[in-house]
């Protein structure tokens, strides 16, 4: 009796292969690979190193913010302010450097600004009980407006004494010819993946998204964690803003417009569930990659760019349908 009981307890639930086949990330990855194979045969320009370089670099801005957004979505929240925070961060960096300060000071100002915005969102949501949707929608408007006020709505393209360093930071390729933004994205994805899988903090994010009141009852510091997560989300937008500034070499007050939707789409396509409790770092990257490939391929295939929204929206709905099917299966 005890032996059979022990054996039952020790039994593994799923084989690794079964888990893989059930994961949305895997199927999106398969879709990406299939699309790449198709495109390299169907067009001459897809599989060129220049196009690959462009795709990988374009993916990064969405992907970096999607990493932060995935954490927000895991705790059952949403952050609509990321596009505006990206703009505000870029603008703070640009103005500070334009005024003659060095790169380090510019980056510090941009990051502190982003963290302050995230803390403001987080405190309103976690301590005052405001709905995340409304708070971050308000911040979407506020942050961009602040960027306009700070810059007097001008374009900044001169970054003072450290101008060349900033452009190198965003536009260079320091390692094996891989664009710098891609390197930052990989580093950040590893950090976020590590946090989600291997730390107590990460574990608690899933717990909050799974059952917030259970997390509170077992003594998880839910409010503090929520504030931290909204700060991380804003930080990821701020970092993307810094990198994008260096890459573009100019900042206008409309960069990052509409980015929040693309980022949320990437997270959801990558398997994050808007009801909370589910999501991975690799999913954020894969989701961002699929969106970029759709965008890139429509251009190469000569399909009218106006179709972009329809394709990306279709992917979101398919991703949610996937999740729905799994839910129905598991509730049987």
């Amino acid at each position: 009796m005890t032996i059979t009981l022990d054996q039952t307890i020790a039994q593994k639930t799923h084989t690794p292969l079964a888990l893989l086949l059930r994961s949305q990330v895997f199927w999106v990855f398969v879709a990406i690979v299939a699309a790449c194979i198709f495109l390299s045969f169907a067009t001459d320009s897809f599989a060129t190193s220049k196009n690959i370089f462009n795709i990988t670099r374009n993916v990064t801005f969405t992907a970096i913010i999607a990493l932060g957004m995935t954490m927000v979505i895991i705790i059952g929240g949403i952050d609509l302010s990321v596009g505006s925070v990206l703009c505000l961060s870029s603008m703070m960096l640009a103005i500070t450097m334009h005024a003659g300060y060095g790169l380090e000071i510019g980056i510090t100002v941009a990051i502190v600004t982003s963290l302050a915005v995230g803390a403001f969102n987080g405190v309103l949501i976690a301590y005052l009980g405001f709905p995340p949707f409304v708070v971050t929608l308000g911040m979407l408007s506020i942050a961009r407006s602040l960027a306009m006020v700070a810059s007097n709505n001008t374009v900044v393209f001169e970054f003072g004494p450290d101008h060349a360093r900033l452009l190198d930071l965003g536009g260079g390729a320091w390692l094996f010819g891989i664009a710098n933004p891609v390197l930052y994205m990989i580093a950040l994805a590893i950090i976020v993946g590590f946090i989600l899988r291997w730390t107590k903090f990460g574990r608690h994010l899933y717990a909050i998204g799974g059952n917030e009141s259970a997390a509170i009852l077992t003594g998880v510091p839910v409010r503090l964690i929520k504030v931290a997560v909204y700060m991380i989300s804003a930080l990821s937008a701020g970092i993307a803003g810094i990198i994008q500034t260096g890459w573009l070499g100019a900042v206008t007050t409309n960069i990052g417009t509409g980015m929040e939707l693309q980022v949320i789409a990437a997270a959801v396509i990558g398997g994050a569930s808007l009801v909370g409790g589910v999501g991975t770092a690799i999913g954020a990257l894969i989701g961002a990659a699929l969106i970029e490939i759709i965008r890139n391929s429509l251009g190469l295939l000569g399909i009218n760019a106006f179709w972009q929204g329809a394709f990306i929206g279709g992917c979101i709905i398919i991703a949610v349908a996937f999740e729905r099917v799994r839910q129905l299966r598991s509730s049987e």
């Binding site: 899933y206 998204g209 059952n211 009141s213 009852l217 409790g277 589910v278």
Partner: peptide, 10 residues
Amino acid sequence: HQDLALCNNL
């Protein structure tokens, strides 16, 4: 706890 305070996703 009465409602067990468990997280279904863990």
